[in-house]
Nucleic acid binder design. Structure first.
Lengths: 198, 198
DNA sequence: GAAAAAAGAACTAACGTTTATTCGTGCTAA
DNA sequence: TTAGCACGAATAAACGTTAGTTCTTTTTTC
């Protein structure tokens, strides 16, 4: 009857949520069973329910943790007295950093949110829509200031967000360049692609 | 006992595969049940098995149809006597076009291939790796010719492929720009981001 | 062209698994 | 000693798939 080993200052629930992130990334939310998770945690499936309410709770815990971090950073960046292009670069670097260092959770949030159930689902979809609009607003400001070339802002948002999620491939690849190089390369391509031709 | 209505020159299996693409996109492969599919087709679940061997057959049919189209196009582009940057643009436009016009299948292939079972799984992973290397080779040639700025080729590949898959958001959005505008915008950002600064 | 035979495609019913989750019991750390 | 936690056993629901049968269309035969 071995107990779940916790990190210091971490609850047993945290351990479960963290292992769930890994599992959901590997197999997808639906394909990952509570028995799989139990095995990963080192315990019987039934025991998990001493710490969590349900499988779906695991998912929306993951998803909203991530979402909140992004919204918080957006608040911060918006209020800084820097140019639109600089804001975009800062945001991009944050997304990249999150994708590198909190890979599992961010990836799962991005791919598996469809399996949230209401009211969490519509709540999340709203947050997402608002977040994208805020990015688009920064871009549009940059276009008005002639810093950014005149292109459709929602399209830029779409490219940005999805390009970053490509870091998944970097994680999986065997011959990785360093995280710093990766960030630098992505910034080079994407931010340069935005700049107005003077 | 209403039969499955086929398009002219199409088998009943084709109808099923097509509906499966839509369903797999909406709910994911695992979450989409054969009973869901049967309902979409207008028939009982058991009846599907007069036309297909298994659920997994549907997935690998979809995935390899798409994969073959991409490999074929790559063969074509590679052998053309044009610059590396032009090859990249042509490839990008093809990916965009596929994502716009064969949305369901391409999207499903991209997101759900993990649920393939061996030997299809490893087969597909191989094809994917080779395909990416071929793109990287074009980019590296462009770098040697000073057409493309000196950046890590695999990173470019990753950005390209994932940026294109962002067209998913375009499909879902209510206030869409036209397909032509979308293509033009994506080319503007991505190809411009590649160009060496002269 | 009508009747008979074969093939195709639908149905209902059921199968064995796997799923998430609950319950009651007893171990074990504080 | 008490609260927390892990356990085995059991639950109902959902899953992909098979079996056997019936209806419908196509093909063959006269």
């Amino acid at each position: 009857m071995a107990r779940i080993k916790t990190e210091k200052n971490g609850s047993r629930k945290d351990v479960i949520v963290s292992k769930a992130a890994t599992l959901f990334r590997e197999k997808g939310y639906k394909a990952a069973s509570m028995r799989d998770l139990a095995e990963a945690v080192g315990v019987e499936a039934a025991s998990l329910y001493n710490h969590i309410k349900s499988k779906s709770e695991l998912l929306h815990e993951l998803v909203f943790n991530v979402a909140n971090r992004f919204v918080l950073k957006m608040d911060e960046i918006e209020s800084e007295p820097i140019s639109s292009l600089q804001k975009m670069e800062k945001l991009l670097r944050f997304h990249i950093s999150e994708m590198i260092h909190s890979y599992e959770e961010v990836y799962v949030s991005d791919r598996e949110w469809k399996h949230l159930s209401d009211p969490y689902l519509s709540n999340y979809q709203n947050q997402r829509r608002v977040y994208r609009k805020r990015i688009a607003a920064i871009i549009e400001e940059g276009i008005r200031n002639k810093e950014i070339k005149a292109i459709d802002a929602p399209t830029v948002v779409l490219i940005f967000l999805h390009a970053v999620s490509g870091i998944e491939s970097w994680h999986r690849s065997t011959k990785k360049i360093s995280a710093e190089e990766l960030e630098q390369n992505m910034v080079a391509i994407l931010i340069d692609g935005l700049k107005a031709n003077h």
